[in-house]
């Protein structure tokens, strides 16, 4: 059966508490998931009080402040700090999003903001989840141009409309995905069947290649996708679309792939 409760060694306990010293009125508390593979301890939530006068406006700023000034053992991923690399995806205040583009002020909880890793994945350490399986699923859809015709002597041409199908006329097309996996880890279907279900992120990418007019492997791609588990585990619950920090619509892309498969039957 699908597991609805955490296994014993994943149950979260109470952690340490760090008070801000010499801070004024402007303070905020963050509760952060901590777990290390060294040793036998269960995960815990550590509490950090931060002097907001000394910290930047984003959740990532708070994490960096903690790492630099309070607790250097805190582990998380980040790189671009501007919502383009997808490294800093985590669950903040109950929703999956990017720490670098989430303003502390916009958190629904005024104080005591809870930060945990992306849900339902094995944890490597603290806020760093294991993404290997999702990357392999992405590789399995062969996300590159496939052609049989000899390569042209110049660029492969595409009409502006066809390019817009990928980039989105409003800049929110499937090609804009940053592979942060906020969507996939918010999808209940992925939680229960992630070993076989490709999940919204990978399916959005699959749709990006299915709809690329320069690609000549559309039929083979659809053949590979038509599977009760790889594709049809999507029940249009739409969590993915509401989770995407880039405003993309994976649920719609998945529906489009299902439509292409239906089209070739009739």
């Amino acid at each position: 059966m699908a597991k609805f409760t955490l296994p014993k060694n994943s149950k979260i306990g109470k952690g340490k508490s760090f008070k801000a010293e010499n801070a004024g009125e402007n303070k905020k508390t963050f509760r952060i998931y901590r777990w290390t593979p060294d040793g036998e301890e269960n995960p815990r939530l550590d509490t950090y009080e931060i002097d907001m006068d000394k910290c930047g406006p984003m959740v990532l700023d708070a994490l960096i402040y903690i790492k630099n000034n309070i607790d250097p053992t805190l582990t998380f991923r980040r790189s671009c700090r501007e919502g383009i690399c997808g490294s800093c995806a985590m669950n903040i205040d109950g929703t999956n999003t990017l720490a670098c583009t989430k303003a502390i002020e916009d958190c629904r909880s005024d104080d005591n903001i809870k930060i945990t890793p992306l849900p339902h994945l094995p944890v490597v350490k603290d806020l760093v989840p294991d993404l290997n399986h999702m990357y392999a699923q992405y590789a399995s859809i062969e996300p590159w141009m496939k052609t049989d015709s000899p390569p042209p002597s110049q660029e492969r041409l595409q009409s502006p409309e066809d390019a817009n199908r990928l980039n989105g006329a409003d800049g929110h097309g499937p090609a804009m995905c940053i592979l942060c996996y906020c969507c996939t880890t918010a999808c209940p279907s992925y939680w229960w069947n992630g070993d076989r279900y490709l999940g919204p992120s990978t399916l959005l990418q699959a749709s990006r290649w299915v709809h690329d007019t320069r690609d000549e492997a559309t039929g083979e791609r659809l053949d590979q996708l038509e599977d009760p588990f790889k594709l049809y585990r999507c029940h249009t619950i739409m969590n993915c679309t509401s989770a995407c920090p880039k405003g993309l619509n994976p649920a719609k892309e998945i529906a489009e792939v299902k439509k292409r498969i239906a089209e070739r039957q009739h």
Binding site: Y135, Q137, A139, L225, D227, K230, A262, Q265
Partner: peptide, 16 residues
Amino acid sequence: TPLARAKGLGSAKSGY
């Protein structure tokens, strides 16, 4: 390998 696990038994080519 992660890729072997992700590919699994391949596509059933059904579900439509």
